[in-house]
Amino acid sequence: MILLRSIAFNIVFYLVLFVYLIAALPTLLMPRGAILAMVKNWSALNLTMLRVMCGLTYEFRGIEKIPAGAVLVASKHQSMWETFALLTILKDPAYILKRELMWIPFFGWHAWKARMIPVDRGARSQALASMTAHAKKEVAAGRQIIIFPEGTRRAPGAEPKYKFGVAFLYNALDIPCVPVALNSGVFWPRRSIMRYPGVVRVEFLDPIAPGLDRQTFFNQLQNDVETATAKLVAMADRDVGLTHRDG
């Protein structure tokens, strides 16, 4: 039954995504708020579909810890789930994403309109400089900058592989950083069509104030996120009675 529900959800998920990508085309000629409103609506619909079709709900903890205005949000990345779910919580988010995604027809157009922040992973130092320049513009507009410090999805329990770029960005932006822990990969595993029932828990941790040196910040961020994530994953394992992981 879980397999059938998962297959049905994936079919509907991508059909809905396609419809929204087409329906959002007029927003390319509108103020940026129009595309942001549509994206938030799409995100909320995804969460509803997961609850109805797969029995997968969610819980956000520590929302009150998010400072008002511009902030750097450094989130654990285990699945596709958080790429849209965080949109429902943050007022005016700007994701840092790989530049190649901006080249995808429809999706890339909307990402440019929403002023997401592209990064060329192959350019190294030049990529950091370009990413930071874009991020500073969005910070000046009071937006929340979302970065996945590991750069890609990591399965629950996998050895963390944080990239030092997050420390470079923290130092350059001089704004608070909110670490985010989660257990989404237990229920929405990467490289899998399965969508398991349960409760995805997301925890916004105590903000890290600006002003730390890069290495101190980097160590604290990884320790805070990994410690809290391990607890959330263990809690999810107990909830479902088994571990859904892809290694």
Rank of each mutant, 00 (worst) to 15 (best):
1 M>T: 12
3 L>E: 06
7 I>C: 09
8 A>C: 14
9 F>K: 05
9 F>Q: 09
11 I>Q: 00
14 Y>R: 00
17 L>V: 11
17 L>Q: 06
18 F>E: 02
18 F>C: 10
20 Y>A: 12
21 L>Q: 07
24 A>T: 05
28 L>Q: 11
30 M>N: 09
33 G>P: 05
34 A>H: 04
35 I>T: 15
36 L>C: 11
37 A>L: 13
38 M>K: 12
45 L>S: 00
49 M>E: 02
49 M>R: 06
51 R>K: 14
52 V>Q: 02
52 V>K: 11
56 L>D: 15
58 Y>F: 15
59 E>S: 15
60 F>G: 01
60 F>E: 05
63 I>S: 13
65 K>P: 00
68 A>V: 00
76 K>L: 05
76 K>W: 07
76 K>Q: 09
78 Q>A: 07
78 Q>Y: 09
81 W>V: 03
81 W>Y: 15
86 L>H: 09
96 I>M: 08
96 I>K: 01
98 K>S: 02
98 K>C: 04
100 E>S: 13
102 M>K: 10
102 M>V: 03
102 M>P: 00
104 I>F: 10
105 P>C: 00
108 G>S: 07
110 H>R: 02
113 K>R: 12
113 K>Y: 02
123 A>E: 13
124 R>G: 03
127 A>D: 12
127 A>C: 04
129 A>P: 09
132 T>C: 02
132 T>G: 05
135 A>P: 10
137 K>F: 01
137 K>R: 06
139 V>L: 01
142 G>A: 06
148 F>I: 03
149 P>V: 01
150 E>N: 04
154 R>H: 15
158 A>V: 02
159 E>A: 14
161 K>Q: 13
162 Y>F: 15
170 Y>H: 12
172 A>Q: 09
174 D>Q: 15
176 P>M: 13
177 C>L: 11
181 A>W: 04
183 N>P: 01
188 W>M: 06
189 P>Q: 05
191 R>P: 00
192 S>L: 06
193 I>C: 04
196 Y>V: 14
197 P>G: 05
208 I>S: 00
211 G>D: 09
215 Q>M: 12
215 Q>V: 03
217 F>R: 04
218 F>R: 12
226 E>R: 10
226 E>T: 13
228 A>S: 12
231 K>A: 14
231 K>N: 08
239 D>R: 04
239 D>K: 06
242 L>H: 14
244 H>C: 10
246 D>L: 14
